[in-house]
Each structure stands twice: as C-alpha cells, then as structure tokens.
C-alpha cells in the first residue's frame, strides 16, 4: 500500500464571493494522490485546473477545505511557512518557463537556495542535474540564449534542486512544438520512474495523455472523471 502524499478535503476556491459574478473555481474537491503517481489534470478552459494546482502547490490558499501534503495540513499556514513548504517539498514547472533573465542557467537552478545559504554540494547537484538534462554546454548561458525546450529543461532542473517529493507542472509543453513537448513529457516520466517523484501536470494536449498513469477531468470546479491508465 503506497503512502498518500496529497490529500484534499472539500477543497474550495471561490472568487468574488457574494457578488453576481461569483466563481466557484474549485468546489469541494476531494482527492487522494499517492507517492509516485503521475497524474494529468485536464478539462476545458476555466474549469479550475490551474486553481487546483496552485492550492496543491501552496501558491494559493483555499477559501475553505484542506490540503494535506505528506501528513502536514498546509491550509492554515502563513506566508513564510508556505514558502518553506514550496522550497522543501515542491518543484514547479510553468508554461512560460519563468526563468529569471540576466542570470545564468546554473544560477537560475540554485536561485531558490540563495537566501538560505547555498552550499558547494548543492551547486554540484545543480550542475549534475543540468548535465543529466542534456544542458552540459548551457550551464553558464543566460536564458535569453536558450531555446524553449532548453529553458523548460532548466526550469525542470530548478524544480529538482531540493529533491522535492512533488513536481507540479502547469501546461509545461504549452509553448513548445510537439516534438519538444514530447521530449519534456518523457523527461518528466523518467523523473517519475527513476526518482519516484510524484508528478501532477495540467494539460490541454490529448497527445500527452498516454504518458500518464492517471487522468483527472475537471468541470466547473469539480472532478467529473478520475481514471487510471493501464500500462
């Protein structure tokens, strides 16, 4: 029996509460994700995928309900505690890469650790990750000189730097051509297999679905489908 790593209980996010344009972006979502799963969240635009991912990743706080990450309830934490959870447990990969311009690929990877004190060991890890991701020759390049696929791989290295248990990716292939997109998804799958990292990814791209083990479909802030891919 695998351990539960993400549990939500009646997790809700409402916007513009009490007004005529009230939105139930997430509406009482109950979800259990176990260690080592590779999950895709799909659904039409506005169905609440990003909202859910943000709350799972402690980027946003729920209106009501709970998020429990590795037995720790994060729903009531303050900003600093949430920042630490993000630092230690979660890696993010975004559609727009969100690298910091003006600093090298390596510095982007180690950036999260800088205010906490960056050790030599971690810097070596960062170089190792970049090499593993095929960026051995790009270590000191600035983001402006990297291709989209390379940027996303730097972003993945950045997500890996603290050996997180969870990687959350919001449309990580959205800005890439389909070939590069497939490379990225393959990469994530390798990480899932080899490092046992739980990966949750939001996507519009039906072609990526064969790569994942579980598909959750949202509609109007609710889960309307939750299926396992048989391998």
């Amino acid at each position: 029996m695998k351990k539960e790593i993400i549990v939500t209980k009646k997790l809700s996010k409402y916007y513009n509460i009490g007004q005529t344009n009230e939105v139930k972006a997430n509406d009482e979502i109950d979800l259990i994700i176990k260690e080592g799963e590779f999950v895709a969240i799909i659904g039409s635009s506005g169905s609440g995928k990003s909202t859910l991912l943000h709350m799972l990743g402690c980027l946003d706080t729920p209106t009501s309900g709970q998020v429990i990450l590795a037995d720790e309830d994060v729903s009531k934490m303050d900003n600093n505690e949430l920042a630490k959870v993000r630092l230690k447990k979660i890696g993010f990969v975004f559609q727009t890469f969100n690298l910091i311009p003006g600093i090298s690929a390596l510095e982007n990877v180690t950036l999260a650790l800088m205010p906490y004190g960056l050790s030599k060991g971690k810097e070596e890890d960062a170089i190792k990750f970049l090499k593993e991701l095929g960026l051995g020759k790009r270590i000191n390049h600035y983001p402006s000189r990297l291709s989209g696929g390379e940027k996303q791989r730097v972003a993945i290295a950045r997500a890996l730097i603290n050996n997180p248990k969870i990687i959350l990716a919001d449309e990580p292939t959205g800005q890439l051509d389909s070939k590069t997109g497939k490379e990225i998804i393959t990469l994530l799958r390798t990480l899932n297999k080899e490092k046992k990292i739980t990966i949750i990814l939001v996507t519009h791209d039906e072609l990526l679905l064969p790569y994942v083990k579980r598909i959750i479909r949202l509609k109007d802030g609710k889960i309307i489908e939750d299926t396992k891919n048989e391998e």
Partner: peptide
C-alpha cells in the same frame, strides 16, 4: 513578476525585501 517567481520557488517576503 520575478519576485512572484522567487516566491513560488521558496523565497520568503523578507528575502525579497532584503
């Protein structure tokens, strides 16, 4: 936007202010 990204990857407000 960068500050938001830094927060997302684990920086605290005080780090950015600093």
């Amino acid at each position: 936007k960068e500050f938001g990204i830094l927060k997302a990857i684990g920086w605290q407000n005080s780090h950015i202010i600093q």
